[in-house]
Simulated scan of single mutants.
Amino acid sequence: MSIAGEPGRGRATAEMVAAKANVSRVAVSRAFNPHTSLKPEKRELILRIAKELDYTPDRAARALVSGRSHLVGVIVPDVCSHWESQEIDALTTALQNEGFATLLFKTRTDYSMDEQLLAYMRGFNPDSVIAFVENVKPKTLVRFLGRAVPIYVNYPFENEDDTPVAEPLYDRLNVFQHNGIDQAVALLQGFGAKRIAYLSGLSKSRANVSRERTLRRVMRERGMGEPQIIPGDFTYDTAYRSTVDLFRIGQGADAIFAANDVGAFGVLDALRHELNLRVPEDVKVVGFDDIAQSHWKSFNLTTVKFDLDERVRCLVRLILRRLNAPDAPSLEETLNTRLVVRGTVG
Rank of each mutant, 00 (worst) to 15 (best):
Ser2Pro: 15
Pro7His: 09
Met16Tyr: 04
Val23Tyr: 00
Val23Arg: 02
Ser24Val: 07
Val26Glu: 10
Ser29Gly: 13
Phe32Glu: 04
Asn33Ile: 09
Lys39Phe: 07
Arg43Glu: 06
Tyr55Ile: 06
Thr56Pro: 08
Asp58Thr: 10
Arg59Lys: 10
Arg59Thr: 12
Arg68Phe: 05
Arg68Tyr: 04
His70Cys: 11
Leu71Glu: 02
Val76Asp: 02
Cys80Glu: 13
Ser81His: 10
His82Phe: 11
Trp83Glu: 10
Ala90Asn: 09
Thr92Glu: 09
Ala94Ile: 05
Lys106Arg: 15
Met113Lys: 03
Met113Ala: 07
Glu115Cys: 13
Glu115Pro: 12
Tyr120Trp: 12
Gly123Gln: 10
Val129Tyr: 03
Lys139Ile: 15
Val142Asn: 10
Leu145Lys: 02
Gly146His: 01
Arg147Gln: 14
Arg147Cys: 08
Arg147Trp: 09
Tyr152Pro: 02
Asn154Phe: 03
Asn154Cys: 09
Pro156Ser: 03
Asn159Gly: 12
Asn159Gln: 14
Asp161Ala: 08
Asp162Thr: 15
Pro168Trp: 05
Leu173Asp: 02
His178Gln: 15
Gly180Phe: 00
Gln183His: 06
Leu187Lys: 07
Gly190Asp: 09
Phe191Gly: 08
Gly192Thr: 08
Ala193Ile: 02
Ala197Glu: 01
Tyr198Lys: 11
Tyr198Val: 09
Ser200Arg: 11
Ser205Lys: 01
Ala207Asp: 12
Ala207Asn: 14
Val209Asn: 13
Arg213Pro: 02
Arg213Tyr: 08
Leu215Ile: 01
Arg216Val: 04
Met219Pro: 00
Gly223Trp: 03
Gly223Ser: 06
Gly225Ser: 04
Pro227Asp: 03
Gln228Glu: 11
Gly232Glu: 00
Phe234Leu: 00
Asp237Gly: 07
Thr238Phe: 04
Tyr240Trp: 12
Asp245Thr: 12
Asp245Phe: 11
Leu246Thr: 00
Gly250Arg: 06
Asp254Val: 02
Ala255Asn: 05
Ile256Leu: 03
Val262Glu: 11
Ala270His: 05
Leu275Val: 06
Leu277Ser: 08
Lys284Val: 11
Val286Gln: 01
Ile291Ala: 04
Ala292Arg: 15
His295Asp: 13
Lys297His: 13
Ser298Thr: 13
Phe299Met: 02
Leu301Ile: 04
Leu301Asp: 06
Thr302Met: 01
Asp307Phe: 00
Leu308Arg: 07
Leu308Met: 14
Asp309Ala: 12
Arg311Met: 15
Leu323Tyr: 00
Leu323Lys: 00
Pro329Asp: 10
Leu331Met: 08
Thr337Ile: 00
Thr337Ser: 06
Arg338Cys: 12
Gly346Cys: 04
